[in-house]
């Protein structure tokens, strides 16, 4: 015990000021998300894949427009279809959302994170916020990019939609918000599953495969499940032409949002209880 009497160490810290706040944790998560390469690459693939696919669809649809039957032509959603590239783009953001969480658990880095910030809900909130902001900003850039590129093809046929046409601005902003919702599905699955491979497979299954499979469910209850299922509901936020029987844009978006918020809250509760 001789060492116990040794002089205290001069730390050089002002301990009155050293108190961890939520802003510190947010800054830390901001550093974290940008310091792994996968963030940049998944975001780039979100932008390129979405815009590329939307352009391809606009090119194909505008070239064949004259050959479509009059009924289809009347219902064709020029602005809304510009968001169709998100069917692939949503997967990139969902993968990133999952990896924001599983990147910590799969590597064991979560132990360093939670040793530095043992208040787990702060960590989860900071990750959620940082990822949410990134997903929304890049989502909007993607949506507007896809819209303008698609309109180049439609303008050759004098059919281009404009942002000041009714519903169009909402549909394009909605496309960016749909990116946020898809990313949150990935993040939520990450919180629940914690394993990168499992979480990515599940997120892709939920956003890409399951919505198609629910169409095969029999009866009216099957139709209802399909109608309210994640992306089947959320994608209506980009509808400009309303089809009878479909969910309205914001109803659809709220349904999808509830479908990730509730599991995320369950995941937060689990994160508080589970061993890191």
């Amino acid at each position: 015990m001789t060492a116990a009497t040794a002089a205290p160490v001069a730390t050089g810290f002002d301990d009155r000021r050293t108190r961890t706040t939520i802003w510190h944790v947010i800054r830390s998560e901001w550093t974290k998300i940008w310091s792994v390469r996968s963030t940049f690459w998944t975001l780039l693939s979100l932008v390129l894949v979405t815009i590329g696919l939307s352009a391809l669809i606009a090119w194909g649809a505008s070239s064949n427009f004259d050959k479509m039957n009059p009924q289809d032509r009347a219902h064709f959603d020029v602005a809304g279809s510009a968001m169709s590239g998100l069917v692939l783009g949503q997967l990139a953001i969902a993968v990133l959302g999952a990896m924001v969480i599983t990147g910590e658990y799969s590597t064991g880095g979560i132990k360093a994170t939670l040793t530095a910030v043992p208040a787990r809900m702060r960590v989860l909130f900071a990750k959620w916020l940082v990822f949410g902001v990134v997903a929304t900003v890049v989502g909007e850039i993607t949506a507007f990019g896809a819209f303008y590129i698609s309109m180049i093809f439609w303008s050759h046929h004098d059919m281009a939609a404009h942002l000041n046409d009714p519903g169009v601005l909402r549909a394009i902003i909605g496309g960016g918000l749909y990116v946020l919702a898809s990313g949150m599905v990935g993040l939520t699955v990450g919180v629940l599953i914690r394993h990168t491979g499992g979480a990515i497979a599940t997120a892709v299954g939920l956003l890409f495969v399951a919505p198609i499979l629910t169409n095969l469910l029999p009866g009216t209850w099957g139709k209802d499940i399909s109608k309210y299922f994640l992306s089947n509901a959320g994608q209506h936020v980009s509808d400009v032409v309303h089809v009878a029987g479909n969910l309205s844009p914001w109803t659809g978006y709220v349904v999808m949002s509830v479908e990730w918020v509730v599991p995320l809250l369950i995941g937060a509760w689990l994160m508080k209880r589970r061993d890191a």
Partner: peptide
């Protein structure tokens, strides 16, 4: 080995440093 291998040593330390508001 419990660290995210994709980060640089400096980024890893910086994120921890920021999380506690350390200089």
């Amino acid at each position: 080995k419990d660290v995210h291998g994709g980060r640089t040593a400096r980024a890893h330390l910086l994120s921890l440093c920021q999380s506690n508001g350390l200089p």
